[in-house]
Design a protein around this nucleic acid. Structure first.
Lengths: 355, 355
DNA sequence: CATAGTTTGGCAAACGTTTGCCAACGATGT
DNA sequence: ACATCGTTGGCAAACGTTTGCCAAACTATG
């Protein structure tokens, strides 16, 4: 109700421009003196359904006119639009951009095009996009860091081909296909890195734990420290609900520091949060990594160039694309895809920023 | 596959194909006992074309069934798909991501959705995408850093609504709408910044000058230095054809340094190239900005957080979205949009990376 | 010459939507 | 009784494509 009313005023107002005369099957058919069906069949490679002469004539026309089948008509005919929708929060996050880029490439090579939707991490926007995409008859939904909403749940339950990436929203129903990493393991790996450096006082900053990924990373980090004998009292924590991870990292670190001073080793659940911590450290005159070692997760490409002080658990976003495509294919073929957990590794960097 | 069938007792055919039972106008019409036309009119807000009783009944059904008009049918009817295509090279470039994000937001608010295509800066891929998008009946093309190809030229000449962003490809025909900045001015501003710091020996690194934007930035930089009395002999140049600007910056700087040593002030035509230069400087033991001041163009968001040594000409990518939408609207309404040149400003940063 | 089989190609339906046109119907005015 | 008019709502065409089915026109076989 609300939706339809909102859409109407705009739609009626704008004028459709003069549409260019497109070459359609009927154009060719008229020119060749055959029926539309014949042209369609020849264009689709059924060369045995017509006289060789006719085939040649039609093929020549297809060639010279530069005919390209109209996807709208085709989509209408059989439900397939060759479009896949990707919903992501905040495209300006380098990790999201990397996922989007890899997915786009994989889909294109498979003959699909990708519609990219920025949900800004807002449930309402996510739902609006889901509805809009369904009305585009998209063939698949790639939901990056999705939010658990009733509509998303309905999509999954209704059998729509949804693949979750990075974070698994807390949905009640049957499990949906997933692409990501073992977040607990990544958190543990970060802990190992700090331990191997012989540090004693640790810090941990994270954003809202409503997200499964964040929660698991934190849990993995904590568990590993506990395993290796670090008392809980030696682990400070900072948290921020800021949506922008840069700001969240800054705020969480301040909270952490105000409570217990600067730690020797700091774990940030994402590289962006690590950047936020770095800014505060600079402002406070704390030298990274001499005074405080920071380890993040993501290993953004830029780290190698301008953040030589940041160790990070590398997540292979470049290969997310093919994994996502594989999961979609599995759903299309009726196979229920399980989890695709990709390998991660620690990239240690300990350079002073000014050599 | 067998398992899902067992789990779903009487679910309709999920196996044969991706056909889902959609609620269409005819569904509603049958249920309400009226014709499809009537439902269509009511759904589109023509409430005066039917008996109030009928209207109420149909509206109730639209509500309860959650009807959403199918965009494919609608697109087929009148050529409008409510889709705009954006073609960009390399989504992982933060500047591109920022443009994509802003454009997506502006388009969504206007009721459009955006298809994002990564051309990887390859002419063939750009053309392939142009053709594919036309067969989707997209209503507009946003070409970021486009490449001059015959097909792109044909699109512009044919009157397709194309808006160029950032870089203006060298097309022979009439000028097409453009969104970007005054690149000459930005280059000059960078020169001013270095001059104001009292430096004497300058360096300039750039990528392929086939792009109008790069060429203009370089020209603006050079012109301003000349104006203010700097002899050409005091300006070293490095160039690289690497497509990835990070690598290009590294390679170009090496070329520059090998020829004439490290300059006091270095201008990079993009922030990514500046990052490349920074890496080489670190490896060479050159301190930035003490030994060498670097100024770039773009002012990526991350600079404020992890590149406090980099001054940059800030480009307002956040506001590119609305400017692009305005240009598209102008084209749709038949007005020929001229250039939309947005304001830029220098953001000076001179902090030591380790305080 | 009759029957059967093959090639060649058109007809029409279907997908979902919008919209110009027309037909009932009732009410009002003369 | 008749003309006029507004209301209500259906019919059908159109957008471009694919495809099952049927019908000619041949060809081969008996």
């Amino acid at each position: 109700m609300k939706q339809t009313q909102r859409e109407q005023p705009q739609r009626d107002r704008e004028k459709p421009g003069p549409r260019r005369p497109r070459v359609s099957l009927s154009t060719i058919a008229r020119a060749a003196g055959v029926s539309i069906s014949t042209v369609s069949r020849i264009a689709n490679g059924q060369l045995n359904r017509a006289n060789p002469q006719t085939v040649a004539r039609v093929q020549a026309l297809l060639e010279t006119t530069g005919y390209r089948p109209d996807n709208i008509g085709r989509s209408l005919r059989h439900g397939r639009s060759r479009i896949v929708a990707m919903l992501a929060p905040n495209l300006t996050n380098p990790a999201m951009a990397a996922i989007a880029s890899a997915t786009e490439t994989a889909l294109r090579e498979a003959g699909y095009v990708m519609i990219l939707c920025d949900t800004h991490d807002e449930p309402a926007l996510q739902d609006e996009y889901l509805a809009a995409m369904r009305s585009q008859s998209v063939e698949g939904y790639v939901v990056v860091s999705g939010l658990a909403t009733a509509m998303l749940e309905a999509f999954v339950e209704g059998g729509e081909p949804v693949v979750f990436v990075g974070r698994r929203p807390a949905l009640r129903g049957r499990p949906a296909p997933f692409v990501g990493i073992d977040n607990r393991g990544a958190g543990a790996m970060a802990a190992d890195h700090l331990l191997e450096r012989g540090l004693r006082r640790f810090g941990l900053i994270h954003s809202a734990t409503s997200s499964s990924a964040i929660e698991e990373r934190v849990a993995g980090f904590r568990a590993r420290l506990a395993e290796r004998g670090v008392p809980a009292s030696a682990i400070g924590t900072g948290m921020s609900l800021e949506l922008q991870h840069l700001f969240a990292g800054y705020a969480a670190t301040r909270q952490l520091v105000e409570a217990g001073g600067w730690p020797e080793g700091l774990f940030a659940v994402s590289d962006l949060m690590a950047y936020g911590a770095y800014r505060l450290a600079r402002e406070a005159g704390i030298h990274v990594p001499r005074d405080c070692v920071i380890v993040g997760i993501d290993d953004n490409i830029l780290n190698a160039w301008i953040a030589p002080w940041l160790s990070s658990v590398h997540v292979p976003y470049e290969s997310f694309g093919t994994a996502i495509l594989a999961q979609l294919r599995a759903r299309w073929e009726g196979r229920g895809g399980g989890d695709a957990l990709l390998p991660y590794r620690l990239v240690a960097r300990a350079d002073d920023a000014c050599e």
